[in-house]
C-alpha cells in the first residue's frame, strides 16, 4: 500500500514539475556586457527602473557572439528578454528572426533618438570606440598607432586583443600599413584576409586574447599585458574609480554602436518595452557618461553633460577625425566564415 502511494506520488510530482515550471512567470531579464559598464548601467538604468516600477529585473552578463543567441532560441531554452548586442549581431539576428520587431511608438518614437540609433529590430544604446591603452605607471611612452602596437622590439610584453576576427583583422591591416578608409576594401579579398592573418602570425606568441570588456583594464593593472586594445570607457573608468594612470591612444580608433534588442518570443515583451522607454529618456541617459564615457543615443542627453567630459567621448570631433567605423555590412556577410578561420588559427 505504502509503496504504491509513494510511487504514485513520485510520478505525479514528476509529471507536474514541468507544468509548474512553465506556469511560474519569469522576471524581466536584461543582458549586458558586465564589469564597470554594467555597474554603471545598474546605477543609471536597472535600479531606478526597479524602484520606479516596483518590479524585479534580473541581470545577466554575456560576452557576445550571435551563436549564443541562436543556440538559446533553437534549444527552446531562452531565458533572456532584453539583450545588448553589437551592430552586426543586430543585423544578422534581425535577418534570421531572432529578435522581436522594435515597437518604436512604445519607446518614445524614432525622433527622440539620434538617427544612427534606429533599426527595425533594435534601438541604439551607446556609441563607443576600441582604442589602444597602456599603463603609464609601467611604460612612460607607449605606441602612437597600431603599427607601433605590433612592434614587439620597441614595446616588449604581451598585447591584448579581442578574441574574434572583428576588430582584430582591421587592426592587423592598419598595423600593416593599410589606411583606415581602405581597410574593408582590402579585407573583402581573400588576399587581404591572408595578409591580416600573416601580420597576426608574426606576433602570435605575444598576443593575449580577452573576451570580456572588463578584462583589458584588469590585465593592464595586473601587468598581464603591456599594451591592449580596449573599450575606451572601461579604461577611463579604471582611471576614474581605481586611481589608475592608463593612457588612451585615439589614433585610428575603431568605433561602433551597440543596441538593445528584445529576444523573439519573449514572454515579457511589454515590460521590456517599458524598460527601453525608461532607458531612452535623455535625463536618464545623461547619467551614464559621467560614470563611463560612452556616447549616448537619446536626443538632448549630451546637452546635459559637463563640458570637460566631452573630449573623452568617442563622439568628440578630434577623436572621430581618423577613426575607422566598423562596417556591420562587412561583418554581416563575413562574420561566420572568418570566425571559423580565426578560431582554428587561434587554437592551433
Amino acid at each position: 500500500m505504502f509503496r504504491r502511494d509513494v510511487l504514485k506520488g513520485a510520478v505525479a510530482a514528476a509529471a507536474a514539475l514541468p507544468a509548474a515550471a512553465q506556469a511560474q512567470g519569469r522576471d524581466l531579464t536584461v543582458v549586458s556586457w558586465g564589469g564597470a559598464y554594467q555597474d554603471a548601467q545598474r546605477e543609471v538604468f536597472f535600479r531606478p527602473f526597479q524602484q520606479q516600477t516596483r518590479s524585479r529585473l534580473l541581470e545577466e552578463t554575456w560576452d557576445g557572439g550571435i551563436g549564443v543567441l541562436r543556440s538559446r532560441l533553437a534549444s527552446g531554452a531562452n531565458t533572456w528578454d532584453v539583450v545588448q548586442v553589437e551592430s552586426e549581431e543586430l543585423l544578422i539576428g534581425a535577418d534570421e528572426g531572432l529578435f522581436e520587431p522594435m515597437d518604436w511608438a512604445a519607446i518614445g518614437g524614432r525622433d527622440a533618438y539620434i538617427p544612427q540609433a534606429y533599426n527595425e529590430h533594435g534601438v541604439g544604446a551607446i556609441l563607443y570606440s576600441f582604442v589602444i591603452a597602456y599603463d603609464r605607471a609601467r611604460m612612460a611612452q607607449g605606441p602612437a598607432n597600431w603599427t607601433e602596437f605590433f612592434d614587439t622590439a620597441r614595446f616588449p610584453g604581451k598585447r591584448g586583443l579581442r578574441k574574434g576576427p572583428k576588430t582584430t583583422l582591421e587592426i592587423a591591416l592598419m598595423a600593416d600599413g593599410v589606411a583606415p578608409d581602405q581597410v574593408y576594401a582590402v579585407l573583402g579579398t581573400a588576399a587581404g584576409v591572408d595578409r591580416a592573418f600573416r601580420r597576426l602570425e608574426t606576433v602570435k606568441g605575444d598576443l593575449a586574447w580577452w573576451e570580456r570588456g572588463a578584462q583589458p583594464p584588469q590585465w593592464l593593472a595586473a601587468g598581464e599585458v603591456a599594451l591592449t586594445n580596449a573599450y575606451n570607457g572601461r579604461i577611463s573608468a579604471a582611471n576614474a574609480t581605481d586611481g589608475r594612470n592608463f593612457a588612451i591612444v585615439w589614433a585610428n580608433n575603431l568605433y561602433t554602436l551597440d543596441s538593445w534588442v528584445i529576444m523573439k518570443g519573449s514572454p515579457n515583451k511589454a515590460r521590456a518595452l517599458e524598460f527601453l522607454k525608461f532607458a531612452g529618456q535623455p535625463e536618464i541617459q545623461a547619467g551614464l557618461p559621467p560614470r563611463i564615457p560612452y556616447g549616448v543615443t537619446a536626443k538632448g542627453a549630451n546637452d546635459r553633460l559637463p563640458a570637460e567630459l566631452l573630449p573623452n567621448l568617442p563622439t568628440a570631433p578630434q577623436n572621430l577625425a581618423n577613426a575607422l567605423q566598423i562596417s556591420d555590412r562587412f561583418w554581416l556577410d563575413n562574420l561566420d566564415r572568418l570566425t571559423q578561420r580565426f578560431n582554428t588559427w587561434v587554437s592551433r
Binding site: L17, P18, A20, A21, Q24, R26, S75, G76, A77, T79
Partner: peptide
C-alpha cells in the same frame, strides 16, 4: 540543456 529546454525545465529551480 537540450532535453530540458523544450519541456520548460531550463532556468527553473526544479530543473
Amino acid at each position: 540543456l537540450l532535453a530540458f529546454g523544450p519541456i520548460g525545465l531550463v532556468a527553473t529551480h526544479a530543473g
